[in-house]
Computed example of a mutant assay.
Amino acid sequence: MCVTCGCSDDNAKIANPETGEAVTINSNGNSPHTHTLPDGTVITHSHTHDHIHDEASQIHAKIHSTTISLEQDILAKNNLIAAQNRGWFKGRNILALNLMSSPGAGKTTLLTRTINDLKDQLTISVIEGDQETINDAKKIQATGCKVVQINTGTGCHLDATMIERGLQKLNPPLDSVVMIENVGNLVCPALFDLGENLKVVILSVTEGEDKPIKYPHMFRASEIMILTKIDLLPYVQFDVEKCIEYAQQVNPHIQIFQVSALTGTGLENWYEWLTQKVANLSII
């Protein structure tokens, strides 16, 4: 079990929705993993499902007897692979965005609308993250863009290793955009660097305007907040100004777009930002 977020070591799978091919990313929880203790000690060990070794028990007793701050860099291995991913993107002049939200916020709907509207301007590829099914990958595939599905099993987020393997399968072209649609969760995805250029948090008006102060790390880690489903504002109790105030309270530098993927309202501002980011990337 991951001491950072509590998700299990169950196998993650990566699937190609076009061919139906699926391969396992992790072995059944037996692969070595690393814990960094507050005193700086680094311990690498494996788990087995048949029995727990005394040494592993002692290690975990020591870990769980200590208050561990999630702000500590206990993700050294993940961060190393994330740095490699970042270099991979940079070397190919690819803009990578990590899209995060709670389930049902409208990530996939916004993503499919964006791909369809900008397909003549930008080349977009997608890494889809869900615990199970390839349903969202099929929706993305219907737009004509390249997509791979990563199923995390009981895992609650994508990590850098999954993205590394996903990129091997996806093989996005030079001078393009990779959209990473993370597992629906407003907590753990913000803690894991995937090597992306930017984090984008998506919040729908059906969720409540206080989400930025309830889940501050997510909104603090994101450079962009997209407020979706604004066509539903006449039918829900949602204070847009208060939501924006809360988001800016947590992150004064966050940039906010208000959109409806259904009606198209506000999408021109999101598209202008996205195309300008790609253009600026080409200049660097």
Rank of each mutant, 00 (worst) to 15 (best):
Thr108Phe: 14
Thr108Gly: 09
Thr109Met: 07
Leu110Pro: 11
Leu110Ile: 14
Leu110Arg: 11
Leu111Arg: 05
Thr112Leu: 01
Arg113Ser: 11
Arg113Asn: 07
Asn116Ala: 13
Asp117Gly: 01
Asp120Trp: 04
Asp120Asn: 14
Gln121Ile: 13
Ile124Phe: 06
Ile124Gly: 00
Ser125Lys: 03
Ile127Phe: 14
Gly129Asp: 08
Asp130His: 07
Gln131Val: 15
Gln131Met: 14
Ile134Val: 14
Ile134Met: 06
Asn135Gly: 07
Ala137Pro: 03
Ile140Lys: 07
Gln141Ser: 11
Thr143Ala: 07
Thr143Cys: 12
Thr143Gln: 08
Lys146Val: 12
Gln149Pro: 09
Ile150Arg: 01
Thr152Phe: 06
Thr152Glu: 06
Gly153Ser: 04
Gly153Asn: 05
Thr154Phe: 13
Cys156Ser: 06
Cys156Glu: 03
Cys156Gln: 03
His157Asn: 12
Thr161Asp: 06
Thr161Met: 01
Ile163Tyr: 06
Arg165Ser: 04
Gln168Thr: 15
Gln168His: 13
Lys169Trp: 15
Asn171Ala: 15
Pro172Gly: 01
Pro173Tyr: 03
Ser176Gln: 02
Val177Asp: 00
Val177Glu: 01
Val177Arg: 01
Glu181Asp: 10
Glu181Tyr: 10
Val183Phe: 10
Val183Tyr: 04
Gly184His: 07
Asn185Ala: 11
Asn185Thr: 07
Leu186Cys: 04
Leu186Ser: 06
Val187Thr: 14
Val187Tyr: 15
Cys188Glu: 07
Pro189Gln: 11
Pro189Thr: 10
Pro189Glu: 09
Phe192Val: 09
Phe192Ala: 03
Leu194His: 09
Glu196Asn: 08
Leu198Glu: 15
Leu198Lys: 13
Lys199Trp: 09
Lys199Val: 02
Val201Leu: 03
Val201Gly: 01
Leu203Pro: 00
Thr206Asn: 10
Thr206Cys: 10
Gly208Asn: 04
Glu209Pro: 00
Glu209Phe: 11
Asp210Glu: 13
Pro212Asn: 02
Ile213Val: 13
Ile213Leu: 01
Ile213Lys: 05
Tyr215His: 08
Pro216Trp: 08
Pro216Val: 08
His217Val: 15
Met218Ala: 15
Phe219Arg: 01
Arg220Phe: 09
Ser222Lys: 10
Ser222Arg: 08
Glu223Asp: 13
Ile224Gly: 05
Met225Pro: 07
Ile226Ala: 03
Leu227Ala: 02
Asp231Glu: 12
Leu232Ser: 04
Leu232Tyr: 06
Leu233Tyr: 14
Gln237Leu: 12
Phe238Thr: 00
Asp239Gln: 02
Val240Ile: 15
Ile244Ser: 00
Glu245Phe: 13
Tyr246Trp: 07
Tyr246Met: 05
Gln249Thr: 10
Asn251Asp: 02
Asn251Tyr: 05
Asn251Lys: 02
His253Cys: 00
Ile254Ala: 13
Gln255Phe: 14
